[in-house]
Write a protein that binds this DNA or RNA. Structure first.
Lengths: 217, 217
DNA sequence: TATAAAGCATACCGACTGGTATGGATGTAG
DNA sequence: CTACATCCATACCAGTCGGTATGCTTTATA
């Protein structure tokens, strides 16, 4: 239960069958350990035991536990958010239609591990934002990028007359992101996809309501 | 910075000036420690040092750390959510108007400590839901009660013709709750109220859009 | 006033934590 | 072949963790 399936890590594993180097092994094992236990309770011994790497190697590549945590945020989490939540936004033709499709397919694109463990960004943010400034600035950077990307999509849509004028793109973007994160959080506690579906309905309805054309169907 | 102000604890302190008993002191100190550091990293020694209570007293009232954590959820967190988010719902005359007012006043009703530390329910849920089943069932109980309360308000509003028929009350309730939680989460990472305001705008707009009367203003 | 129970204090334990000191292997440049 | 840096393995450290064993004090009960 504690280990990730192939589906969970396609975005991390190298495409060819080259082995990860030592640093990469440590980084990914640390990501998993932190995702499960949080940063503070993440045990270096666990990470080492699971990789077969020794403590000497770890402290050769990272000066201390905190630096390892920062590297996980910068190189693993940020990369995954980018691939899963930001890049897809650019490929929408009709942004609202695209969004609705993305939301309605969300159930498939999330693995059960994602539901069990929650969004790694959100989990880490909740734990560390008020404790360590280094984590906080890294995490707010990721959030800001995400919010801005959604806002850009909405701005374009409004300029093209696809959504009503009353919508303030950035506020709506933050709200949409909040729904997505809140839904994952609720689903994690429920340990099933029901809450995710409910939020999918609510978000879809919100998107329908801000469209200029009331959306056939 | 780590201690709570009077404004943060009005809901916990006894109304008269009677001292809290030993059990109450432990419980409240544990709540604070857990809110700041999370459950796993919460240190019993810290709790004891801050209260002046000794370890013998602690283990007289609670069999172990986990039981203490459960008691914090049952007796402190659940009570606060009840007072802050559930009970106010019952007193709305026009539910939509009431909601909008509640949301727009949210900036005032949240202290800066709430922003710094985040929603205690959400923080604990993110950390413990996938690790300990005892925490999970307690937390999902609180969430379910909250969602159902909002759904009841929406159902009543729909029956009275105040919101459009297309709204499915429970789904919308879960979505509204997700927005509230997601906004607090984002504000915590940003360490300011901006994100909270943006989500307030988005949520207000959503509420306006599901009203039958397009809402004078 | 005798007795039992509740409430609490002190001292201590083994397990585990992040971190370090040291030395050996391997690669690379001169 | 030498010299030096990179990379990593082993052993160890001081400190903290949650938890326990024991005994003293206070309160309720009879």
């Amino acid at each position: 239960m504690n280990d990730l399936t192939d589906k969970d890590v396609y975005w991390w594993r190298p495409l060819d069958d080259t082995e990860l180097d030592t640093r990469g092994k440590i980084l990914f094992a640390a990501y998993k350990e932190i995702h499960v236990n949080g940063f503070q309770s993440a045990s270096l011994s666990n990470i080492l035991a699971r990789t077969g790497v020794t403590k000497g190697a770890l402290y050769h590549h990272f000066p201390n536990k905190t630096a390892l945590g920062y590297a996980v945020v910068d190189e693993v989490i940020a990369r995954r958010i980018q691939m899963s939540f930001i890049e897809p936004l650019a490929h929408f033709e009709d942004p609202i239609e695209g969004f609705i499709e993305l939301v309605q397919n969300a159930g498939d694109s999330f693995s059960m591990t994602d539901i069990e463990l929650g969004c790694p960004l959100s989990v880490l943010a909740q734990e560390m934002a008020s404790i360590d400034e280094g984590f906080r600035v890294r995490l707010i950077g990721i959030y800001e990028q995400w919010h801005q990307s959604i806002a850009d999509v909405l701005t374009k849509a409004r300029d093209n007359g696809l959504i009503i004028e009353a919508v303030e793109p950035y506020s709506m973007a933050v709200t949409i992101a909040a729904i997505m994160e809140g839904s994952l959080s609720a689903s994690k506690v429920a340990q099933n996809l029901q809450k995710l579906y409910h939020c999918g309905c609510g978000l879809t309805q919100l998107l329908q309501l801000i469209r200029t054309s009331p959306g056939a169907r």
